[in-house]
Design a binder for these strands. Structure first.
Lengths: 162, 162
DNA sequence: CTTTGCCTTTGAGCGCACTCGAAGGCGTAC
DNA sequence: GTACGCCTTCGAGTGCGCTCAAAGGCAAAG
């Protein structure tokens, strides 16, 4: 997971906007969108470098995610990858799950369930509830580690925050 | 990191206690000991299986930690590893750092600083302060992931806790 | 005495999630 | 035209942290 993205010219971006149909507005839950806090004012279609910049992943990783079937990405006339808002949101969502240590295999499984439609909601619910429990366990572990760390800091003469 | 340890007979444990000198009480900071919450009533010397049981690591991992120089462990008459309270406490301490994703290389470095004596306290302090920052960053990431997870749970009809 | 079970050392293997490299294509700039 | 920079695919390599296997030793149990 990188943080240093590569900027691309606004020219290429504008080229896409000019050249292609604007797709219908994404059917994205606005509340979820807010949780994912994508920057606003994003162009309709982004190059892989821009998508990397926005998501904080590398272009390599984005290609890798596509290769293993985690995401699908459209192409432009030059067969270059072209990321729309929905793709971006999905990637950020995936990134959140990854940052909470959900294995890629589980994320894949979850996304398959989503693809299978509404009747898999119970399974998805169960999966997410289990993941929440995992996160909460992890939070407790981190608190315990923070306690020893803070203890060490205070005994070394540092000043631990409350 | 396992959780399923292997129990060993109390006979072997008693054998050690009978056969060898009881070492002087460990110079372990009682407050740190409390933070590490080792079970009390531990025998002076433990076999590797017992140490695994207590620490939640596997015997394999304990040997591995020793091989890479993270810990030093004494031997008994049969050249079997024998863990005393100090070793146990150190292992649990290491485990806390590992559970907070401190890389083994950093833990090694920290332990070398400790071995070098009091004059390295400033470096250790810096190291721990940096680690604290890392943990806190991680806590925030997890909270963000928890937020999306909870959002998914509520939209699937689950009931997220506040 | 043999079996059983836990222990020893050493080197090799594994799973995960990237990460990189080679070889080549597109399109704008000069 | 050709140079440049970003893009493509696909296979291979990397780093971390274990995890396992082989070959053999010790000692209590039957």
């Amino acid at each position: 997971m990188n943080t240093t993205g590569v900027l691309t010219t606004p020219e290429r971006r504008q080229a896409f906007v000019d050249r292609y149909e604007v797709p219908p507005p994404s059917p994205l839950d606005p509340e979820l969108l807010k949780l994912l806090d994508l920057p606003d004012g994003l162009p309709e279609q982004l190059s892989i470098a821009e998508a990397a910049e926005v998501t904080g992943l590398t272009a390599h990783t984005l290609r890798y995610y596509e290769r293993i079937g985690l995401i699908r990405v459209g192409r432009d006339g030059a067969r270059y990858r072209s990321y729309d808002r929905l793709a971006l949101a999905r990637i950020v969502f995936i990134t959140r799950l990854r940052l909470s240590d959900m294995p890629i295999s589980t994320i894949s499984h979850y996304l398959e369930l989503v693809a299978q439609g509404e009747e898999t909601a119970p399974q998805r619910l169960a999966l997410m509830e289990e993941h929440r429990a995992t996160i909460q366990r992890r939070l407790r572990e981190l608190q315990a580690a923070l306690a020893v760390t803070d203890y060490k800091i205070t005994t070394y003469g540092g000043h631990a925050e409350p």
